[in-house]
Simulated assay, not measured.
Amino acid sequence: MADMFPRPPGLAVFLNAGDPPFDVLDDVADMLDDHEVDVLELGVPFPDSISDGPVIRRSADRALAAGTELEDALAFVERARGRHRHLRVVVLADWAHTVRPRSTARVVTAIAASGAAGALLHGAPPRARPEFYDRAGAAGLPVVTTCYATSSPDVVAEAGVHASAYVYLVTHYGPSGTGPPPDPAALRAPVDALRALTDAPIAAGFGVRTAADVARVHAAGADAAVVGSAVVARAEASSARGGDVVAGLASLVTELRPHHRRRSPRPVAHL
């Protein structure tokens, strides 16, 4: 498996499928690729998430109100497949809202067929996870596992053993977008524990809002930072002002990695 984060510090960003609307989201993804963002975590929107703060919950509500379904998200992934030189798209699907009504087999098969670079199963009970791991492995679909910095050794071991895309290390408990910046001293031990269990990259998120936060994550030994609420909030603010969402997010990406040199934009296709 190619490394998701080939040049540290890596960067993953989160957006919900359908918010911004897909015609804008297509352009956002192209911009992320031009800026060499490593991963777009694309959420299939679901309601009433207890792990998400108000910013991401508003985004999910807007996407759901627009009628966004798993099939719409995967159509976006298929459009992106082969168009991007750097950006990978990972699909985040909620167990209760998206997976259980359709079956694990159907969802894994569909995500793999879309060309997604990985899948993250949100909120799955322990009894459901082994089937997900097995079916993803059989389909050749890389898995993003999750654990908290304070998770028990058993939970950390499961995350390490089954990660084939990367481990998402959540820096603290509580809703997204509401916690403090990451603490390198507190993250070093869980990062080291995961390193002993897996060769998969480690990406840390929750509380990552600025370039200084990205640097803190890297200082803790993680391969990448995950930025969610700050990205969704910037898109929301740009849209509310009637501004250019793509330009607003490009500015944020530049702020997060001020010393990163942008690659030359893709050639414009002539019709």
Results as ranks from 00 to 15, higher is better:
71 E>K: 14
63 A>Y: 07
80 A>R: 14
60 A>M: 10
94 D>T: 00
71 E>V: 13
88 R>M: 04
68 T>R: 05
54 P>Y: 04
75 A>Q: 05
72 D>Q: 08
72 D>F: 07
72 D>A: 12
106 R>T: 15
99 V>P: 00
75 A>L: 07
95 W>K: 00
103 S>K: 02
70 L>W: 13
77 V>F: 02
81 R>C: 02
101 P>G: 05
71 E>L: 11
96 A>H: 13
65 A>Q: 06
60 A>G: 05
78 E>P: 08
69 E>R: 15
100 R>W: 10
96 A>C: 04
81 R>I: 00
106 R>I: 07
71 E>Q: 14
95 W>H: 15
77 V>Y: 04
95 W>G: 00
95 W>L: 01
77 V>A: 03
75 A>E: 15
63 A>R: 02
59 S>P: 09
83 R>D: 11
102 R>H: 07
84 H>A: 01
63 A>Q: 05
92 L>R: 00
105 A>I: 12
53 G>R: 02
76 F>G: 02
99 V>A: 05
52 D>H: 04
78 E>Q: 12
53 G>M: 03
89 V>T: 14
69 E>K: 15
99 V>G: 02
59 S>I: 08
98 T>G: 02
101 P>D: 04
64 L>A: 08
104 T>N: 10
101 P>H: 12
87 L>K: 00
68 T>H: 07
101 P>C: 11
83 R>T: 07
69 E>D: 09
93 A>P: 07
107 V>S: 06
105 A>H: 14
92 L>V: 14
63 A>S: 09
84 H>M: 07
102 R>W: 06
95 W>M: 06
56 I>Y: 03
68 T>G: 06
90 V>R: 03
62 R>T: 01
90 V>L: 15
92 L>S: 11
52 D>P: 13
73 A>E: 05
81 R>F: 08
87 L>N: 08
74 L>I: 05
60 A>D: 08
79 R>T: 04
90 V>T: 10
56 I>P: 01
90 V>D: 06
102 R>C: 11
73 A>F: 01
68 T>P: 03
95 W>R: 03
95 W>F: 15
69 E>P: 11
94 D>Q: 06
77 V>R: 08
63 A>V: 03
53 G>E: 00
87 L>G: 09
85 R>K: 12
87 L>S: 01
80 A>I: 02
95 W>N: 06
70 L>T: 13
93 A>Q: 06
103 S>R: 10
70 L>V: 08
79 R>V: 11
74 L>S: 11
52 D>E: 08
86 H>T: 13
79 R>E: 06
52 D>I: 09
77 V>P: 04
103 S>Y: 10
58 R>D: 15
58 R>P: 12
76 F>A: 06
70 L>R: 06
78 E>I: 00
61 D>F: 03
105 A>S: 14
62 R>H: 07
57 R>T: 10
92 L>I: 05
56 I>Q: 11
97 H>G: 07
106 R>C: 11
56 I>E: 05
62 R>V: 03
67 G>A: 05
88 R>Y: 02
90 V>G: 04
56 I>N: 11
100 R>G: 01
82 G>N: 04
85 R>N: 10
63 A>G: 08
76 F>V: 01
71 E>D: 15
73 A>P: 08
84 H>Q: 10
89 V>K: 10
